[in-house]
Design a protein around this nucleic acid. Sequence first.
DNA 1: TATTTTACCATACATTTGTATGGTAAAATA
DNA 2: TATTTTACCATACAAATGTATGGTAAAATA
Lengths: 211, 211
Amino acid sequence: MYGKIKMSIELTKIQKDILDFIIEKRSNNSIPPTLLEISEKFGYKNRSTVQQHLSALEKKGYLKKTPNKSRSIEPLIEDKIFVPRPVLGEVAAGNPLVIYPDSIDSVELPSFVKIAATSFLLRVKGDSLKDAYIFNGDIVIVNTAVPIKNGSFVVAVLDDTAVIKRYMKFGEEIELRSENKEYKTIKINCNYEGLRLIGVAVGIYRIMDSN
Amino acid sequence: MYGKIKMSIELTKIQKDILDFIIEKRSNNSIPPTLLEISEKFGYKNRSTVQQHLSALEKKGYLKKTPNKSRSIEPLIEDKIFVPRPVLGEVAAGNPLVIYPDSIDSVELPSFVKIAATSFLLRVKGDSLKDAYIFNGDIVIVNTAVPIKNGSFVVAVLDDTAVIKRYMKFGEEIELRSENKEYKTIKINCNYEGLRLIGVAVGIYRIMDSN
DNA sequence: TATTTTACCATACATTTGTATGGTAAAATA
DNA sequence: TATTTTACCATACAAATGTATGGTAAAATA
């Protein structure tokens, strides 16, 4: 037996059930539960039991809370044990960005990938993004809540076609640069209506063929 | 002057601003605001001002609250006076259903159209849906939370192409019928993986050319 | 075996949050 | 002009919510 993961970052059955309940609430388009609501769901007599489970989940990095703020539990899907994550859409440069209300698939992400709940996954179709060194089948992790800074890899829709490029802004001019110098830089005014910045590509995950 | 709408169901500028703030919070994938948070946003010195605006909004039917429950404000987009609603995507039968994370447009809906927060709008492109008597430019109101019953108009994705058809289920067989008898009925097994039922088309809105 | 972790309970307390009540001044309406 | 509505303020109170602390018993671990 090798590579055994330390118990302390794994989740117990109950912790996982509670985390799943929180994630389910969120994905149901409803508000995150309070400690009391979780207690009632699991039949506890008071909130302190949940309190401890949550603090364990937070210590292990599976969720984030804002102190003294109601309903502020934010699950971070940190899958040290390969938890499935829904793939919400597909992206191919030159084509519209397609996002399905239901997930089209799910991917098991490895331990080191931390995903905030404000993120979603896109699967890359075709090799039209190879200028960004992103290839067919890659999973792009897009965060919609992270501020866009110079140098960020952004997922954008320009005149109804999707691009993933490095973002640079100088005054009113936005440059969308390709990593590969063979592709030219797109320059647009930041007020141009045909431009929509969807989010920041915070990561790419590629499932390597094991053959 | 004719057809004047009674003042009591119109929104004042401030009420509209507060409602917009709540809707914006919701669509931002973040939790609904508390009274205090709204107060701070608008620079009020205490919650009671917001309290009154909310009760006005609730009385006028623009939002729903659960008593004594934190962050329980649910906007009901009941647009008695043409309030803008974001159009989230586009649909054309035979093509993928395209949904943009940011809205691509907004439409002013008339007074009688009530839209729950679990709904979204799709603009129809092209005349490929004319078999359902839905035409280019029509706005389809899709509710994702309504149960699908026999006879419902459903928005579905079948093998990556979008359809809007009348739904009928007999045992394990699902029929997707066209209103126009020139088009043939699609029959599929309900376990077929290529079928995804997105939601129920609860309404169609067509902006008539005033020329 | 001793210690730690897990999973619960109980209770007290502070803060947040929602609610109720009453007030003022300006604007809109009758 | 009188009344109502709007838009704010102030305050008090109750309920909900988060937090801190301490306890017990069983299971897992060292």
